[in-house]
Design a protein around this nucleic acid. Structure first.
Lengths: 224, 224
DNA sequence: GAGCCTAACGGCACGGAGTGCCGTTAGCAA
DNA sequence: TTGCTAACGGCACTCCGTGCCGTTAGGCTC
């Protein structure tokens, strides 16, 4: 693809990485995942096979996004959130910061999405990646729910629910071709999970009940 | 381990399978997962390397339980459940039928659990397996929530929550050594997720809508 | 009980993933 | 110009997973 390059700077490494990802996506899409060898990807990116494995730990990793930044952001939101903020809402905010990883390069995200959903090996790897987020959320939630007798269960449920909503919203958007004017709808859909979360005291049901009763009383008041 | 055997009956195949699983668990536990080759497992079970791959698709599969039966049971519960039963409760019942796969042979389940949680490759495979259950639940739930405007989101949340609760209860039990007198507590913990599922309560959005409508009506009426 | 049929077995060989090792080279600094 | 460092690429190796094929056990028929 290009001339032989040796001895790269940091910027050079980032460029090589992008070329490897692009080559992998192109080859997988065109010839199929199993039919594409690491040799072919490396050659298409103009580097040696050995170098490929200095950028990715495995063939699958070339296609899955780097979640280092996403996981770091999630952890950061939890560590800087005020102790009084409801844990479920912290989790919700944390999840929202991860959308950026996909909206930055929609075309690449869509290509990855399509490959991931038709190659079993990539799908399984994706499941594992998603589970890392779920575990991270659950761990932080459990810390914040330490005084709840069912805190571990609530943390597991909220963590899993937030991740599930995130993925549903994200995949719906990706399946539609990742339109720029669909990002707001994606986030709105994701936020709607808040209505389904088991919110801690005061009970949501109790609050709404009281509000509804108050409104009902107002409505039944005879007009002047 | 035994004499060379050739040409097995169906019962013979089941026995060979058990021996391979036992050999894999023993070797992985004693020498580590990466250090154990498929050759060694096959030899310990008294069969050839080629035969190993007639029983398992991969080295990892020798350690992970066969979920065929579990997935079939879940599907069966959904297909035979009465249409009027709340979807979340169907999911809850479906998940409960899967505990049997682990309580049948507690010692083996504990050995698998320990290996799975200290070998990254096995952990990732486990995540993928769990995700298959989640997807199955979500798919069936979505069908039963077709008339709910947020049915897909609710299905995703309930499915993920049920699976998360199942795994938390199961792992807690396994981590404690899978005591026979802990099975009831495991199931009780799992069932407690029902209190956190977004089905009984009206959604916050619905309540908000009603409140806003009521306020609108009040505003259009002269004060008392 | 002799012969046949089917299914499982084991060995062989091959391609490809992933890794340790090492000589080489680009880019930078003194 | 010289020396240092980090990245590169080739080589060789192990092991996983699979197609192929000859062989054999166990059951069935007559």
């Amino acid at each position: 693809m290009t001339q032989p390059r040796r001895g790269r700077s940091e910027a050079g490494r980032a460029e090589v990485r992008r070329e490897l990802v692009a080559a992998a996506v192109a080859q997988f899409t065109e010839h199929g995942y199993d039919e594409t060898t690491v040799d072919a990807i490396a050659a298409a990116a103009g580097v040696g096979r050995r170098t490929f494995f200095r950028y990715f730990r495995s063939k699958e990793e070339a296609i899955s996004p780097d979640h280092t930044a996403g996981l770091a952001r999630v952890a950061d939101v939890f560590e800087t959130a005020h102790p009084s903020e409801p844990p479920a809402l912290v989790a919700l905010r944390a999840g929202e910061t991860v959308f950026d990883l996909y909206t930055e390069d929609p075309a690449l995200s869509v290509a990855r999405y399509r490959l991931t959903h038709q190659v079993p090996a990539l799908r399984d790897r994706e499941s594992a990646s998603v589970d890392h987020y779920r575990r991270l959320l659950t761990r932080h939630l459990r810390k914040r729910l330490a005084d709840d007798p069912d805190g571990d269960l609530r943390a597991a449920v909220v963590g899993a629910a937030v991740v599930a909503a995130h993925n549903l919203a994200l995949r719906t958007w990706l399946a539609a071709g990742a339109p720029a004017d669909g990002i707001d709808a994606m986030i709105a859909k994701y936020r709607r999970v808040a209505d389904m979360l088991p919110v801690e005291q005061p009970s949501l049901a109790a609050v709404t009940e009281r509000l509804e009763a108050a409104v009902d009383r107002l409505e039944q008041r005879p007009p002047a």
